[in-house]
Amino acid sequence: MISPSVICFSVQESFLEIMLTHNLCEWTSADICFMNKPVQIASKVIMILLVSGPIVLMAQENKTERETRIKKSDTPLEILNVLEPYLKESTRIKYYKEIDGDHRSFEVKFKWKSKRYSIEFLEDVRLEDIEVTIPFETIDQGSKEQILLKLQTYDRYKVRKTQKQYSSDQSSAAETISKAMRGNNEITIRYEIVLDTKSKGVWSTTEMTFDQSGQFLFEKQVIKRSEDHILY
């Protein structure tokens, strides 16, 4: 892989060369030398960072999950057929392909009867799960109490997003989807909650998964989008 730092410096060098060769600026070689003087030390530091940065950073790269938006025509026909009854009454329909290591899947997101759904299928078009975004308060009272017991172990917390997840059962994909869309609780349910938590003075964003009765199953840190371009 060509290091981005090499590209940056090559572009800079070529730019200065073009400017001088074609007489596009009033700078002389002496000017360029002068301009370089005040930033000589800073340039060296940046050069080291740029050259070493990609090597160090590439070693840190371990997140392989990637979700890419695709066209409807790139989504397998079997998936479109099984979702057809709902999609014709839906808005904001989006199609995605997700790659997470060896795991590949298709995902269709849409808004149906004022609720946001996300239905995921494996690469061989078997149904994986159905997620619907719900208000936290609408979780069954018993389950909610259990979930709150876990959340109260943090100094502070703020729920950002709650999803009810229906897993595929023994019945056909169409039947499972139909049950989930009707809110039938007979199929396996989990709750996925994204929340900001404060522990030992530090805030972080976490996605927690609970079973149907509100028992904590597992959690994972949410990697937040970089903020420097909106901060400085």
Binding site: P4, G53, P54, L57, M58, Q60, E61, K63, I223, S226, H229
Partner: peptide
Amino acid sequence: GYLISSNQKL
């Protein structure tokens, strides 16, 4: 913006 890797962007 273009995210080159999880830690670098242009």
